[in-house]
Design a binder for these strands. Structure first.
Length: 437
RNA sequence: GCGGCUAUAGUUCAGCGGCAGAACGCCGGUCUGUGGCACCGGAUGUCGUGGGUUCGAACCCCACUAGCCGCCCCA
């Protein structure tokens, strides 16, 4: 049988990389908790219709990037059902909001999630077929303040706080408003018309986009095209009064709390449900996948899914990209953290049980302990210990008889004998001092 | 889904038609209760997979698979 491998676009995450993942997730949970968010866990697959209606039938995600299968009927009374691995989590959260009648609480719901999502795209760096998102949604009845621009600003401020807490330096917040559900189609139509007379002067890609997806012309990076693009209609001119006021209020709130942002009139998100505020936090060094996270407001999504009016705003962080960015920045910084506190080395198999017992006591004191093997020769025990831990306890025949254990700290090379009963306290102290250096 | 580049030891890579290599890592020894440093020795492997050309293929050709870069799209 051929060697089994993780399927295309999926991968294993192993130590020590998983340590970084844990740090990212822990930091996110801590920050979210300070803003009153609670965790939600929705199923990894849903009825296909949820995504078709929520994300948009015509989007690339739904039309060609979903893992969809027919879950066949197993009994006469059962109907087969089209199921899909979730390509994003907002639709699932809103479905749960409706299903559990959370609107009836009258409260603003602040929910965050962490988990895998699935899209059948061509894999690249920072783009996988199973990828991980950390996201959050603020959603509720208008009477709870869910429509307020203050919610938008608070979410953006929280994200700035999170990226800073993780030590991501040099992020940029790109901000725009795509207007109401009726503003955007009007704009797309105007854009399409404005492109007709000028398309011929644009690059090949843009000539194609002008027809298939005029909004993407705005993303064009070809320098020669920029003067023409500048002359195209701006979405800002198509916002109704309410959307215009909302956007102004978001900006003013961000100004007031000192979160820097860049208004990018070309930032137009691809999912159908977005209204008004849209945003993206970007970072260089990710190549073509420069977006660390993206999100926006979705005032009509609940109703699109058959629920009550429940405006909301949310975001999804590409955890894979966040980790890549941290790895690129951190590469030299880590190393010692992976080391355990102490390696307990029984010398001779007769000492093994005593060693396990000692390791158990030390671990109960909170020390990180690796246990050797009595069959190892002394030299080998030291070599193993030096690779895995910051110190070694030698547990040989002499030590067992005298009750005085040999302890050596690698960083200093210092070696002493310590009474067995005091060894835990001694190590706790020694490791704390070591950490400060 | 489309285009380009790539695939050789555990890892990073050299070799580009004539014996499968280096560095690091790994194992052993110098050193029988002492790691790191040094020195000595050892094992690495379907050269991504399958086919073709050739006296002879890691090397040239084709297909497939996977990774990377870009397009589409998106976190």
């Amino acid at each position: 049988m051929a060697l089994m491998k993780a399927v295309r676009g999926t991968r294993d995450l192993l130590p020590p990389e998983t340590e970084l993942w844990n740090r990212v997730e822990r930091t996110a949970c801590d920050v979210f908790a300070r803003y009153g968010f609670g965790e939600i866990r929705t199923p990894i697959f849903e009825d296909t219709q949820l995504f078709a209606r929520g994300v948009g039938e015509e989007t690339d995600i739904v039309s060609k990037e979903m893992y969809t299968w027919e879950d066949r009927a197993r009994a006469q009374s059962e109907k087969s059902q089209s199921l899909t691995l979730r390509p994003e989590n907002t639709a699932g959260v809103v479905r749960a909001y409706i299903e559990h009648k959370l609107a009836e609480t009258g409260l603003l719901q602040k929910l965050y999630y962490i988990g895998p999502q699935f899209r059948r795209e061509r894999p690249q760096k920072g783009r996988y077929r199973q990828f991980f998102q950390i996201g959050a949604e603020v959603i509720g009845p208008p009477s709870a303040g869910s429509e307020s621009p203050l919610r938008d600003a608070e979410v953006l401020e929280m994200l700035a706080t999170l990226l800073d807490a993780l030590g991501i330096a040099g992020w940029t917040l790109e901000l725009n408003s795509v207007g109401s559900a009726t503003d955007r189609p009007r704009y797309v139509q105007a854009l399409r018309e404005a492109l007709i007379p000028v398309a011929a002067s644009l690059c090949d890609d843009c000539q194609r986009r002008a027809v298939t997806n005029p909004l993407r012309v705005l993303d064009c990076k070809v320098p020669e095209d920029q003067p023409v693009i500048e002359t195209l209609p701006k979405i800002a001119d198509f916002l109704d009064d309410a959307s215009r006021a909302h956007f102004a209020a978001v900006r003013s709130a961000l100004d007031a709390c000192g979160v820097p942002y860049h208004v990018n009139p070309r930032l137009v998100r691809g999912l159908d449900y977005y209204t008004r505020t849209t945003f993206e936090f970007t970072h260089g060094g990710l190549g073509a996948q420069n977006a660390l996270l993206g999100g926006g407001r979705y005032d009509g999504l609940s109703e699109m899914l058959g629920g009550p009016r429940a405006p909301g705003i949310g975001f999804a962080i590409g955890a894979d990209r966040l980790v890549l960015t941290l790895q690129a920045m951190d590469s030299a910084a880590r190393g010692d953290e992976a080391l355990l506190d102490v390696y307990v080395a029984p010398i001779g198999e007769a000492q093994q049980n005593a060693a396990l017992q000692l390791a158990r006591e030390l671990r109960r004191q909170g020390l990180r302990v690796e246990l050797g093997d009595g069959s190892f020769r002394i030299k080998k025990a030291f070599e193993m210990a030096d690779k895995r831990a910051r110190s070694i306890i030698l547990l040989g025949e002499d030590e067992l008889q005298s009750g005085q254990l040999t302890v050596k700290t690698f960083a200093s090379g210092e070696q002493t004998k310590i009474a067995r009963d005091e060894i835990g306290d001694y190590l706790c102290r020694a490791m704390r001092v070591g950490e400060q250096n």
